[in-house]
Amino acid sequence: MTHFFVKQMILAPTVALRIDESEFEKLKLSREILLSAKAIEEKYDLLISNFLELEKEILSQLAEHMIFSQFSYQDMYNLRSVLNRRVANLLTSTRLYYDQIEKHVRTCMKGENKFGKEVKAYFCDEYDTNFEYRFMEALRNHVQHYGLAVHSLSLPSKWVGENESKQMINQLKINSTKDELSQNKEFKSSVFSEMPEKVELTKAIRIYIGCFSNVHKRIRDLINFNVSLSRADIEDVIHRYKEVNAGDAIGISAYSVEEDDPSSMPIDKISILLDWDNVRLNLNEKNQSSKNMSKWYVSGSYL
């Protein structure tokens, strides 16, 4: 007969808390659910971080070109090259998020396949609603299999305001062009037919990431009950162990043994702690929903 306990895995004598098999299995499932929820947040954080790096790159390069007036062919090539790298990194992370999200959601929803399919429908909603989402998905496939994303760029500037309040606005425009994409005969025809002669990528990417933000919020809402319950299950056993062990629950594990002796060699063991799940909570707080991202911009104006 198998017996189940919770105790600190240390060399010194310590208290063992007896649990039953159903609670042991519940703790195992709760840990799997929290790990998958954390994986979802980590992949979204990777996506958002790559987006932030692209936005920062655009601002940094714009400031440098504004101050140093670097407009040679080599300067412009170097600029286009670094922007292509940032866009490629971003598109790789969006695909990673899309490809792996279904399995993580299924785990969070206790293995029910219908919820994985439901999540894929969230992406379909964004695809059907937004040209920019459709275009960026087609562009991602182009970058993965054929060519680069940034085909042309410009650095327009203009004066705004009057008299002493006049300021010069400097911008960096990056584009994917229809002419360049026409060379890829595998580029999605339906998207190609609806695109203009050039697509301004900064705007398109902001809308695209806003779509992912919408999807991520829906996923959080979908899994929230199971994830919160799973954390509460682990918090409960930690609290109960502290009550029988003078408030100390550092390094505890739930485990099974063949004999009714908590000092026997475990045949199955899971660590019981939540420090790593606190990372998930911090990522959840850090990466808030931002569906209106396309309407935001950073200004260096002092007015």
Results as ranks from 00 to 15, higher is better:
Gly251Gln: 14
Phe51Arg: 12
Lys286Met: 10
Leu148Lys: 09
Val105Phe: 01
Phe123Asp: 03
Ala249Pro: 06
Ile270Tyr: 10
Gln288Met: 07
His151Trp: 00
Asn278His: 13
Cys211Lys: 11
Gly247Pro: 15
Gly111Asp: 05
Leu222Lys: 15
Asp221Ala: 05
Arg220Asn: 15
Asn292Gln: 11
Arg231Phe: 00
Arg106Asn: 09
Asn245Cys: 12
Asp236Ile: 00
Arg18Ala: 06
Cys108Leu: 10
Leu54Ser: 03
Lys103Pro: 09
Phe135Leu: 08
Phe71Cys: 07
Asn78Gln: 13
Val105Ala: 03
Ala63Phe: 08
Phe123Gly: 05
Ile58Thr: 08
Asn89Thr: 09
Val6Gly: 05
Gly116Lys: 09
Asp20Ser: 09
Ala249Ile: 01
Val244Met: 08
Gly161Ala: 07
Arg134Asn: 13
Ile238His: 07
Arg134Tyr: 10
Ile58Glu: 02
Trp296Tyr: 05
Lys242Phe: 00
Phe123Glu: 09
Leu96Ala: 08
His239Met: 01
Ser30Lys: 05
Val160His: 14
Thr202Phe: 02
His104Trp: 09
Ser263Gly: 12
Arg140Met: 01
Asn287Met: 00
Glu132Asp: 15
Ile219Leu: 07
Leu46Gly: 14
Leu273Gln: 15
Met9Leu: 12
Gln183Ile: 04
Tyr255Leu: 03
Tyr146Met: 01
Ile40Tyr: 05
Arg231Val: 01
Cys211Thr: 09
Asp221Trp: 02
Leu59Ala: 15
Leu201Asp: 07
Met265Ser: 15
Ile33Phe: 11
Leu29Val: 10
Leu46Thr: 10
Gln74Met: 06
Leu79Val: 11
Glu164Met: 09
